[in-house]
Design a protein around this nucleic acid. Structure first.
Length: 422
DNA sequence: AGGTATTCACATGAAACTATTCTCTGAGTTAGG
DNA sequence: TAACTCAGAGAATAGTTTCATGTGAATACCTGT
């Protein structure tokens, strides 16, 4: 759905080549070696690639630089909040700025550190403790992953920070994730950090996908954290096309992209809130598909195929990585729906009954309906199912559950789940 | 007919509990001097 | 005596359970006409 790296997953998929005999295998490899790759440098199309020039984000870059620049003169810059949907270049611009500023600080010997933390990273920075621990590690203190009280780690961090006169900018990417998970206490703790420091000073940059996020945090935090804000609007189709064009020059060997392909790719991605990452993924997978089918150029049809492929592997990957209980619930939903006619929906109660049955069969323990309710909403969030809350008046309230996964895909999901469960 | 009250089948929230993972500590044990 | 082992104790976290409360609208039940 969001940051899970679909790109890598798609790349790992085996090639769809049927190999019957050893001779064919030999020739296949030989042909493979002889065949020229369409790609010059695939990395350019991946998320982690940091381009030298960031297109269509000049205004934001200027703002960002203007706000953070005082740090270079050892003043405390304003705290900053950055909003924007996924794939609008927030992280990219931020990282770019960080690299530049850190380099400058190093060469001029300015006591400035910028620490970047992605709060979404599991096991690294997704709870209050982990964030503070990670910060402490960034400034060079060893702290255990667990075993210490949170405020002790906080004190360790604080002492180390204050040891010398310096400016620290802490960038918290996807800050809305922790707040949703463990409340806004961390933010409060962090914002009052300055009042406990004598020598050092700290500024914060929060990056969030969710614009409404700021509305439901503690007002005290809101005012101190949101001194400045920058908004990253989605790219429109034209801008996306520019970006794709620029990167495809570096990524592919020669002009192998047919007319209109980039436009189509951009249009697809623009349709989904202008996500540049998606556009790049699409182009890369399209390239892979074209290569695999021995095409010399990337045509519009490859984009369609790429989209389908990305979607398929995304769904399968999500399902495979779900915890067991979640898988059981998913399978129950599929079973309930399979027992019905097309177009009909399942309800929470039915799914729960089926779920209990399934647990007995597979020897798993049965969770409460309360929990199943949550699991169902989680599956909904993941986009595996659609669940709509409806009231049937006298006959209660429930979730209408249905799926939008195409039928040919369903087959595969079923077997996957069966394999996982039995 | 129009208005109010019920009622169903869950949803949603908060708090408490459980199992697991990890560290640190200090008692007891061991091996070498 | 120093080094080592190993069982607590304390802490964080994910995943659940328990208990309590909320909810939207189709029906049932009134009410006065």
């Amino acid at each position: 759905m969001d940051e899970t790296n679909i790109s890598d997953f798609v790349a790992k998929q085996p090639t769809e080549v049927k190999i019957e005999t050893k001779d064919e295998l030999d020739t296949f490899f030989e042909e493979f070696l002889e065949k020229d790759s369409l790609f010059l440098d695939k990395v350019v199309l991946q998320v982690k690639y940091l381009p030298e020039i960031i297109l269509h984000r000049t205004a934001q870059m200027k703002q960002l630089a203007a706000i953070l620049a005082p740090a270079l003169k050892t003043d405390k810059p304003s705290n900053l909040f950055i909003y924007g949907k996924t794939g609008t270049g927030k992280t990219l611009c931020m990282k770019h700025t960080i690299t530049k500023m850190n380099a400058l600080a190093e060469s001029r010997n300015i006591p400035l550190r910028i620490i970047y933390l992605n709060c979404k990273l599991k096991k690294v920075a997704d709870t209050e403790y982990r964030i503070i621990a990670q910060l402490a590690r960034e400034v060079g203190e060893h702290v255990p992953m667990t075993g210490l009280p949170t405020d002790e780690v906080y004190n360790i961090f604080l002492t180390k920070l204050d040891a010398k006169k310096q400016t620290i900018i802490i960038v918290l990417d996807e800050i809305d994730q922790i707040v949703r998970k463990s409340g806004d206490e961390i933010l409060y703790t962090l914002t009052r950090i300055n009042s406990e420091l004598n020598q050092a000073q700290v500024a914060f940059v929060g990056i969030s996908n969710d614009v409404r996020f700021i509305e439901d945090i503690d007002p005290r935090v809101r005012s101190s954290l949101g001194e400045e804000e920058i908004i990253f609007p989605p790219y429109n189709a034209l801008e996306l096309k520019d970006i794709l064009a620029k990167r495809s020059i570096l990524a592919f060997k020669g002009p192998i992209i047919e007319d209109g392909v980039l436009a189509k790719c951009a249009a697809y991605a623009a349709r989904e809130h202008g996500d540049a990452r998606r556009a790049l993924d699409l182009l890369r997978v399209a390239g892979e598909v074209a290569e695999r089918t021995n095409c010399e150029a990337i045509a519009a049809q490859h984009i369609d195929m790429a989209e389908e492929k990305i979607e398929k592997s995304r769904i399968l990957e999500i399902i495979e990585t779900q915890p067991k209980q979640s898988q059981i619930v998913m399978y129950s939903i599929l079973l309930v729906l399979a027992a019905k006619k097309r177009g009909e929906i399942a309800e929470t109660g039915e799914v729960f009954e089926q779920y209990k049955e399934l647990c007995k069969q597979t020897g798993n323990n049965i969770l409460t309906q309360r929990r199943i309710s949550d699991l169902i909403s989680e599956l909904d969030m993941l986009g595996l199912i659609n669940a709509r809350l409806i009231s049937k008046g006298r006959y209660g309230r429930t979730r209408e559950i249905y799926i939008t996964i195409p039928a040919d895909m369903l087959e595969k999901i079923n077997t996957t789940l069966q394999g996982e469960l039995f």
